[in-house]
Each structure stands twice: as C-alpha cells, then as structure tokens.
Amino acid sequence: MSQLDEWMAEVRGALELTPAHPDEHKLVLDIARDVAHGVLRPAAPVSAYLLGLAVGRGADPVTSASAISELAARWAAQHPGADE
C-alpha cells in the first residue's frame, strides 16, 4: 500500500466514505493534471472539488472526469498559453 493509498484510507475513515470508483485517485489526479496544464494551476483543485460534488450527487465518476478533461482540452485549444 502506498502512502497515497494510506492517506486516502485515513481520510475516507474520518469522513465515513466508501470509494465511489476503484480508481478514484487516478481519476482525480488525471483531471487535476489536465486542468493544471490546460487551464490554470489553481483550477485543478477546484475542478477536483467540483468532480467530488458531482459524484456525491450521483454522477458517474468516469463520465464526469472525462467531461472535465475534455473541457480542459477545449479550453487549452481556445486559450493558447493560458496555463503559463
């Protein structure tokens, strides 16, 4: 078990949560990377938070993460150099 896995287990326990998806950390890290590089670094944690809200309200984690990554790619194409 990695430190990330241990940390996530601690946080889940403290918040009384069960994983929404087996690879939830990968989904969050991937959208954070996509948003940080395609939009703006501070948008990454905010986007991860919004993903969590959507999933908490019943949205599919994979579909929602994919939508955010697609939005980030479109944003990057429409706003060249915005992440610098």
Results as ranks from 00 to 15, higher is better:
M1A: 05
M1V: 09
M1L: 08
S2W: 02
S2P: 01
Q3T: 07
L4I: 14
W7N: 12
A9S: 06
A9N: 04
A9T: 07
R12K: 09
R12P: 00
R12G: 03
R12H: 09
R12N: 08
R12L: 09
G13S: 15
A14L: 15
A14V: 15
L15Q: 05
E16R: 14
E16V: 14
E16Y: 09
E16K: 13
L17T: 15
T18N: 15
P19E: 10
P19I: 10
A20V: 11
A20G: 11
A20D: 10
H21S: 07
P22G: 03
D23N: 12
D23W: 04
D23M: 04
D23E: 05
D23Q: 06
E24T: 03
H25W: 11
H25E: 12
K26Q: 06
K26H: 12
L27C: 01
L27T: 03
L27H: 01
D30L: 06
D30I: 03
D30A: 04
D30S: 13
I31A: 03
A32S: 13
R33T: 06
R33D: 14
D34L: 07
D34G: 11
V35D: 00
V35R: 03
V35I: 02
A36W: 07
A36F: 08
A36V: 09
H37G: 11
G38H: 07
G38Y: 04
G38I: 05
V39G: 02
V39C: 00
V39N: 00
V39Y: 00
L40F: 10
L40H: 15
L40A: 09
R41I: 05
A43C: 11
A43Y: 03
A43S: 04
A43F: 02
A44R: 04
A44C: 03
A44E: 04
A44V: 01
P45Y: 00
P45S: 00
V46L: 12
S47T: 00
A48T: 15
A48M: 13
Y49C: 10
Y49A: 07
L50T: 05
L50A: 01
L50S: 06
L51D: 00
G52Q: 11
G52A: 02
L53C: 10
L53Q: 14
A54W: 10
V55G: 06
V55I: 07
V55M: 02
V55S: 02
G56S: 13
G56F: 15
R57S: 12
R57G: 11
G58R: 00
G58H: 02
A59W: 04
D60C: 01
D60R: 01
P61D: 06
P61N: 03
V62M: 03
V62W: 06
T63Y: 09
T63V: 10
S64E: 13
S64W: 07
S64C: 13
S64A: 15
S66N: 09
A67T: 12
I68E: 05
I68C: 03
I68G: 09
S69V: 06
E70M: 11
L71M: 12
A72P: 13
A73E: 06
A73C: 15
R74A: 05
W75T: 08
A76W: 08
A76N: 12
A76V: 09
A77D: 08
A77C: 14
A77I: 11
A77H: 09
Q78E: 12
Q78V: 08
H79G: 09
P80K: 08
G81A: 10
A82E: 02
A82C: 04
A82T: 09
D83R: 11
E84L: 08
E84G: 15
